[in-house]
Computed example of a mutant assay.
Amino acid sequence: MKHLTIFILLFFMIPAATTAFAGQAKTNTSNLVIHITGFENSNGIAKVVLVNSKKNYNKETPFKGYNFNIINNRVIKNITLPYGEYAIKVYHDENGNHELDTRIFGIPVERYGFSNNARGTFGPPEYEEALFNLNSPKKEITITLQ
């Protein structure tokens, strides 16, 4: 009888514990809808960099990088991401050379933008200006290139 009692207890406790731990391990994710406008044409691609910390904002190794096709002078993309803080940088790689082309003194020739439509005075805006929080099942943002 003792073995039967232990078996019954284990039979009911293990699935309950597994379900409880599975709920704790679940990461909340969000569907981020990105609208990018301000393209003068649909040539080339939109190079999009997603960063998830101040540490990787100015580095060559972002959290994620994307090449999006431009259709009718705009981009609309859905990305599933875990909840957290992010910033987005984008530029129109019109000639497909995978570089932001610049003039003298580093002034961009190709159009570019940041999340929150943040703008820097002499260079890119600070991370905190482009930062947005992803903390709901769906979020839409619009970036207008300059």
Rank of each mutant, 00 (worst) to 15 (best):
Asn28Met: 05
Gln146Pro: 13
Tyr83Asp: 09
Leu50Thr: 00
Gly106Asp: 07
Val90Ser: 11
Leu10Cys: 15
Phe63Trp: 07
Ile76Ser: 10
Lys139His: 01
Phe132Trp: 02
Asp93Lys: 12
Gly123His: 11
Leu32Val: 02
Asn69Thr: 09
Ile8Val: 14
Thr102Pro: 07
Ala130Arg: 03
Asp101Trp: 07
Asn56Thr: 03
Glu129Phe: 01
Thr19Leu: 13
His92Trp: 02
Pro125His: 06
Tyr83Phe: 12
Gly84Trp: 04
Ala87Met: 04
Asn78Ser: 15
Tyr86Pro: 14
His35Leu: 02
Ser53Asp: 00
Phe68Lys: 12
Leu131Ala: 09
Asn78Gln: 13
Phe114Met: 11
Ser115Asn: 09
Leu50Lys: 08
Phe21Gln: 12
Tyr91Glu: 02
Arg111Lys: 15
His3Gly: 14
Gln24Phe: 07
Glu85Lys: 11
Val90Glu: 05
Lys64Gln: 13
Gly96Ile: 05
Glu99Leu: 15
Pro108Arg: 13
Glu60Thr: 08
Pro124Thr: 03
Val33Arg: 15
Leu145Tyr: 08
Phe21Lys: 14
Thr19Glu: 11
Thr142Asn: 13
Leu100Ala: 04
Phe21Ile: 13
Ile34Thr: 03
Lys77Asp: 01
Gly113His: 07
Ile79Cys: 04
Ser30Met: 04
Ile45Tyr: 06
Gly120Ser: 07
Ala20Cys: 10
Asn133Lys: 11
Ala20Arg: 14
Ser30Ala: 12
Leu50Arg: 08
Asn43Ala: 14
Phe105Lys: 15
Leu134Trp: 04
Thr121His: 04
Ile141Trp: 04
Asn73Ser: 13
Leu32Ile: 03
Ser42Thr: 12
Gly113Ile: 02
Thr29Arg: 10
Ile36Phe: 02
Lys55Leu: 02
Phe12Ala: 15
Ala25His: 11
Leu81Trp: 04
Glu60Pro: 01
Ile76Leu: 08
Tyr86Asn: 13
Tyr91Ala: 00
Tyr86Thr: 08
Glu40Leu: 04
Pro62Thr: 03
Asn116Ser: 09
Arg103Thr: 08
Ile8Glu: 09
Ile8Arg: 10
Thr27Gln: 13
Ile34Trp: 03
Gly23Pro: 06
Ala25Lys: 15
Asn116Ile: 00
Lys89Trp: 00
Glu128Val: 02
Pro62Lys: 12
Phe114Pro: 07
Thr37Ala: 09
Ser115Gly: 10
Val48Cys: 12
Lys55Ser: 09
Phe63Asp: 10
Glu126Lys: 15
Asn117Thr: 02
Glu60His: 05
Ile71Gln: 10
Phe105Gly: 10
Asn58Glu: 07
Tyr91Gly: 03
Ile88Gly: 03
Ala20Trp: 12
Lys89Arg: 12
Val48Glu: 07
Asn116Asp: 03
Phe68Gly: 10
Arg111Gln: 14
Ile141Tyr: 05
Phe68Ser: 10
Asn69Glu: 11
Thr37Gln: 08
Asn117Asp: 09
Glu126Gln: 14
Phe132His: 04
Tyr66Asn: 15
Lys2Ser: 15
Thr80Asn: 14
